[in-house]
Design a protein around this nucleic acid. Structure first.
Lengths: 328, 328
DNA sequence: TCAAGTGTGTCAAACGGTTGATACACAATA
DNA sequence: TATTGTGTATCAACCGTTTGACACACTTGA
């Protein structure tokens, strides 16, 4: 790879001059500028970003730590994070924490020594107080950490809409399947909303919980099967994520419950699996592109020290009327 | 962030000594070593990888350019690429080319000036000869470029298995929907295999093509609807990807064709959408974890200059007997 | 007594850039 | 004529780390 020295030598100017041409600083005559650009072109020269980063103490890289990119929600999120980052001159380094607290810690260390300018944190395994003296711009996704800006959806509204939708459509026994309760995340508001709306309605309702950070479809199927064995009267399910909702759909088919006539299902997230399923899954869709965009924007404004106060960004959700519920 | 100078000062030794301790070179007394480590701990010191990269001319970063991480296949692929890279001390920078040749080119430039040690290329929009003097270790995913190592699946076998499966199950008019023909990729072997097996069987068969790099579900639906209008006798479909297969499933439901009794469907890829759909999609599953692992292994061996010759790695596929075909 | 080894640690250059200080030539102004 | 300003380009220090060359103090053995 050609270096700035090669360009300087070839163009018969000093290294400084080449640098000045690139960075548009100081006085440079048009002739010199042209010549330098010509040589840069000819040598196919690209400035070494590592050297630049070292001097500038700025890498223009952000790290994204999530549980697993292969989960649709995170895949879609990362897709838009990358787009927004790129549009702002940043590169994205990706890390799958895989629900392993040790790995998450190591990733943070690694990103820090790689001199990333900031981190988006979407995984949930580290203890809250480990973040305290992180000394690095951080934005969390769906995780409340004191003093750290957080991007999340309006889980409460989503939960209310979903629950009310089941009630409005005549369900007599509604169930909610939620993630593990010991994890304190904003997503728990979905569950709280269900409990509240269902409770106020007087309609029979049941709440189930998946085991710790479980995301395996087969485990979901087992859980749902057991649910129907124990509560055969359930005729409406609000699942806290779309995969869970798809598991309900599968089990319903297995045990011969017609969807939506005998059983109505609403998921949460609005991921691709829900969109392409047949029947199309009704769901509370999060605005993933906007969440990603906001995450990056917030992070960049912390990096540039424009914003200093931690805030919580709550984005609206949208009710997707799929075919797993009755038309109203 | 503490630097090596801070550590040296605090430990009352020279910077060189600290470096030697970290890198285990030269003579260091046990006492000095202990003290240096203690100070490093105390200051929470992490060596600056940017400075190291500059000196070593090695960043330990690989770039991954794919069309879009939000497509399940790539999401799952990246998940395992990251894992394998991490296990070997490499970080992953992710780039979504979004089927934009210009963006792909820019990403390559950007990765090169970021001094990545190598690139995995899974996108398809740049012209082949643009890769010629890339001067950087590259491995492609599903793309044949002369002189470049390529990782792919056994598309031919997959295509044969799928086609034969439809024939064996009594289909009288089988269709294949393929990606755009103008793109020369190993995935085209799926189509060739279909044409050959179907042709040899004497059974009526039809081949359709999606428009250029189309990956939008609604466009798929339209295409499939049109297909059934023009060829109502189709009773077996081999789709070149699972999303297309799911679109067939959806349209089948719409027009009242029972799956699998009146219409059998087989997809390709084995992505999550196919696994969680109801009925579960029959598909030819690619071994995504292995593809990812091989890609990284190959790239690392090119980086370390162990391997110098470009090879083609063809990995086995697996027939997943879903519920969209009849039991044999 | 002195050369040769050995254990310990320092100096300074290098990696590829950026930038404040400075030099120089020339023109305009006091 | 001396001063100031301006357009141009260079010098050298710096970013944080690594490493070959070297210095020093102690043995050790001839």
């Amino acid at each position: 790879m050609a270096s700035i020295h090669d360009v300087a030598r070839e163009a018969n100017v000093s290294v400084t001059t080449v640098s000045r041409v690139m960075n548009n600083r100081g006085y440079i005559s048009e002739a010199t500028r042209k010549k330098v650009f010509a040589v840069m072109d000819q040598l196919n020269y690209r400035p070494n970003e590592v050297a630049r980063s070292l001097f500038r103490k700025k890498s223009n890289v952000i790290g994204v730590i999530i549980p697993d990119v292969s989960f649709s929600f995170f895949a879609e999120y990362v897709r838009y994070v990358e787009e927004e980052a790129y549009a702002n001159g940043y590169k994205v380094m990706i890390c799958n924490a895989l629900d392993d607290g040790q790995k998450e810690r190591e990733y943070i260390r690694m990103l820090r020594s790689s001199q990333v300018d900031g981190i988006i944190l979407g995984s949930h395994t580290m203890d809250i107080h480990e973040f305290e003296n992180l000394q690095l711009p951080v934005v969390t996704l769906d995780r409340t950490v004191p003093g750290v800006t957080c991007v999340t959806s309006d889980n409460d509204a989503g939960g209310r809409i979903a629950t009310q939708a089941l009630l409005d459509r005549g369900c007599q026994h509604i169930a909610h399947i939620r993630g593990p309760i010991e994890l304190e995340t904003p997503a728990n508001r979905r569950s709280d909303a269900f409990a509240e709306v269902a409770g106020a309605s007087g309609v029979k309702h049941t709440i189930l919980e998946t085991s710790n950070n479980e995301f395996v479809f087969n485990a979901y199927l087992k859980l749902v099967e057991k649910m129907f064995q124990e509560h055969p009267s359930i005729d409406g399910v609000f699942a806290s994520n779309d995969l869970l909702a798809l598991a309900v759909l599968r089990v319903a088919k297995m045990i011969g419950k017609h969807v939506p006539e005998q059983l109505q299902i609403i998921g949460f997230d609005g991921v691709h699996e829900a969109t392409v399923s047949t029947p199309q899954m009704a769901t509370i869709s999060q605005d993933i592109p906007l969440m990603a965009k906001e995450s990056v924007q917030q992070l960049l404004s912390i990096i540039s020290e424009e914003s200093t106060e931690a805030i919580k960004i709550v984005l609206p959700v949208q009710f997707i009327h799929g075919e797993t519920i009755l038309p109203k």
